[in-house]
Nucleic acid binder design. Structure first.
Lengths: 208, 208
DNA sequence: GGTCAACCTTACTTTAAGTAGGTTACTTGC
DNA sequence: GCAAGTAACCTACTTAAAGTAAGGTTGACC
């Protein structure tokens, strides 16, 4: 009685409360899907009432956008970090891929908001946020590819970058659903197809 | 006066009305996005009242699912048709790709429901329908790749199929947004990367 | 120990999905 | 031709959840 659990409601500074709200929202969005997620429930699980959510995030869509933006920042950081110290463009690509797959595995809940299309529901802003993630990836790949192939026509490079990003995204969904494949293996599968091509799978190249 | 435009309201047999509703719904979903699309508006533009939509499609999500399912059927037909009469697996793959890009261009409104993630909004059913499209593509690719590489480990083939599907999807979004690229060119870009690999772009192979 | 700001609440409005039950027009057998 | 049945259709409602107005409480700092 003297040392009651003190799990009682507590006032939090804004920054901390926002972080908590994002965590709870991410969980509920991933759990129920955006449409079925109720703001009342998110508020309740935060131990707070609904207008607080609106105070801090403006709207339901705003809350989703904040979740996605957070994940986006984390992903960009992870990939950028992974690429430093690479021995060359090819190594940089591989390291980036590994980091990407590791991230999507570790944050599969957050990432599923992107992958499983929980975005465009809400409207323009959320869709734009998801598209921004992909655009960011394309930029990164484009920079890499340009380093490889300074003389190639721009349009070829753009197409190639889109291909890499699309392959990554889809492969990550597959990879996350399989327990027997590691991030390295997924990256290797992709590197092999991208680098060597399917033809080489048919008949291994003469050398190299 | 004798031959008044007769654009007056008219009773339609169910099948015809359903087709009309699907066409209108597809348009409005693509125009406004799923969330912002109002059932009242769809009904009104059909010249019919809302309960009819619910009578025929059960729910808003059901209507979306019907739209997607229709597009899915059309796409599968287009790809299957394109592949008949191919001279070999490689040609079959290329023809399939061309058909895919042509379809997504011609039906860009319907396809945007899939590409721009207008699905999972609604809930499980719509998401499942979109996933079914991708699964269908994976199956097709898997069959093709197995014909290529009967001895390759299953897991390699699956990864490759996922890569092809992801690349297709992303590339189609890019291609649709560019007026200066034809379906054939998009298919060729993809074939080149997939078949020959990026390495060959760096230094063209010695022979064929 | 007062006062100011930030955190938080109750209780409301609004919008759009979904529905109950009745009405009108086409068709089919006589 | 005409009744009777059925399929297409409507008006008017309920309900659920997003979003908001206006005010109460707590803690920090002079």
């Amino acid at each position: 009685m003297t040392t009651a659990p003190q799990t009682r409601k507590r006032r939090m500074p804004r920054a901390e409360r926002e972080r908590q709200m994002l965590a709870v929202a991410e969980e509920i969005f991933a759990e129920r899907g955006y449409a079925a997620a109720a703001m009342d429930e998110i508020a309740e699980r935060c131990g707070v009432s609904k207008p607080m959510l609106y105070e801090y995030f403006g709207s339901k869509e705003g809350l989703l956008v904040a979740c996605i933006r957070q994940a986006r920042g984390q992903l960009a950081t992870a990939i950028t970090q992974a690429a430093v110290g690479a021995t060359g463009p090819r190594d940089a690509l591989r390291r980036g891929l590994v980091a990407f797959f590791e991230f999507t595995d570790a944050h599969r809940r957050a990432w599923s908001l992107v992958l499983r299309n929980e975005a465009a529901v809400a409207g323009q802003a959320a869709a734009a946020e998801v598209e921004a993630i992909r655009q960011e990836q394309v930029e990164i790949d484009l920079a890499l590819l340009t380093a490889f192939l300074p003389d190639a026509p721009r349009v070829d490079l753009e197409a190639a970058a889109q291909i890499v990003v699309g392959a990554c995204e889809r492969l990550s969904l597959w990879y996350v659903s399989r327990d027997d494949v590691t991030a390295e293996q997924a990256a290797d599968h992709l590197m092999r197809v991208l680098w060597t091509g399917l033809a080489a799978l048919v008949e291994p190249p003469t050398a190299r």
